[in-house]
């Protein structure tokens, strides 16, 4: 017994080479395979990101994380570009700031970012003025009708928007695509990267694109299994628990009043961790720690939504 105990291997991981680069004049060494974003974070630079997900393969969709790399003709997405030896990165040049400002303005003018964390700070930091494209266009009731290539040119009096009715078609979660920046994270989480259920995809093209089920059928008719792993990764609050959605509508949602408790899911023996968000002694939503080795932020319907029995008092 003792012998076995002594031979228990100590996990050391593979030896990693360090890569040295310069970020805003500071030299930094990070493990090979890191991204420029990792290197920037290591020196304390706060790079805005939206489509980047710590549990997903970078999609390079939002372009808010761009940095300047010496020798590169174009700006580079820091969330996906791997570090190389001696590369010189600048995160705060006028070109970078200009690019971020424009990206934020275009997103801010067309998407409801009211529940996207950090956006207000970024707008101020980059002096973005999303209002400069004009007042937002009213709600569109036909966003789920796709006629690719058919452009309905506006007259310039209003700014095009994603504004559309919320999709409330089940008791568990709501899809408010007026808040969607088309970052593809939910699609990737539902698809090959995690869930392999393939309930949702991007439909249509260009500004008419929408996250959608086939022929926009309602979720209960689709392949969705309500794992909520799409909600977990959504950076904008476009996808939210029905409980959160209802409380926001009532005006009772208050994150400052909430506590978060991470615990073990008791439904089966897999060992997923749950983080219970509790307000007024009631569970209002469930998330899952992304750094947990079992689920990496993913759950099934039971862990995600099966909490009602706890509060049947």
């Amino acid at each position: 017994m003792t012998a076995t105990h002594e031979r228990t291997p100590v996990e050391m991981g593979m030896p990693v080479r360090l890569v040295t680069l310069s970020v805003d004049g500071q030299e930094v060494s990070v493990p090979e395979g890191s991204t420029l974003l990792d290197a920037c974070t290591a020196v304390g630079e706060d790079i805005p990101t939206l489509c980047y997900g710590d549990t997903l393969t970078p999609k390079n969709a939002c372009r808010v994380c761009m940095v300047e790399v010496e020798g590169s003709r174009v700006l580079v997405p820091s969330c996906s570009r791997k570090v190389t030896e001696n590369v010189v990165v600048r995160t705060d040049t006028e070109r970078v700031r200009h690019s971020r400002r424009l990206v934020l303005e275009l997103l801010g003018s067309s998407v409801d970012l009211s529940t996207t964390p950090h956006v207000e700070e970024w707008m101020a930091e980059y002096a973005a003025d999303p209002g400069r494209f004009g007042p937002p266009a009213p709600e569109d009731l036909h966003r789920d009708v796709h006629e690719p290539g058919e452009h309905h040119a506006g007259d310039g009096s209003v700014a095009e928007t994603m504004e559309q009715p919320d999709k409330v078609d089940n008791d568990l979660y709501v899809r408010d695509y007026s808040k969607c920046i088309l970052c593809y994270k939910c699609v990737d989480a539902c698809g090959t990267q995690w869930q392999n259920t393939f309930a949702i995809q991007v439909a249509g093209r260009g500004f008419e694109s929408q996250i959608s089920t086939e022929f926009n059928v309602e979720l209960p008719e689709s392949a969705c299994v309500y794992c909520g792993n799409c909600i977990e990764v959504c950076p904008t609050g476009a996808l939210s628990f029905k409980s959160e959605y209802d409380m926001r509508a009532e005006g009772t949602w208050n994150e400052d009043e909430q506590t978060q408790t991470t615990t073990l899911c008791t439904f089966c023996g897999v060992g997923c961790n749950l983080t219970l968000h509790v307000q007024d002694n009631t569970i209002v939503k469930v998330s899952s720690p992304h750094d947990h080795s079992v689920g990496h932020g993913n759950l099934c319907i039971k862990g995600r939504f099966g909490f009602q029995h706890v509060q049947n008092r």
Binding site: V145, P148, E150, A199, I200, Q201, V202, G204, T213
Partner: peptide, 18 residues
């Protein structure tokens, strides 16, 4: 998956899903 076929069908202007 059907959602995937739909995403392809609605990308190309020569196809119609209506």
């Amino acid at each position: 998956p059907p959602a995937d076929v739909y995403s392809v069908a609605t990308f190309y202007a020569l196809f119609s899903t209506a």
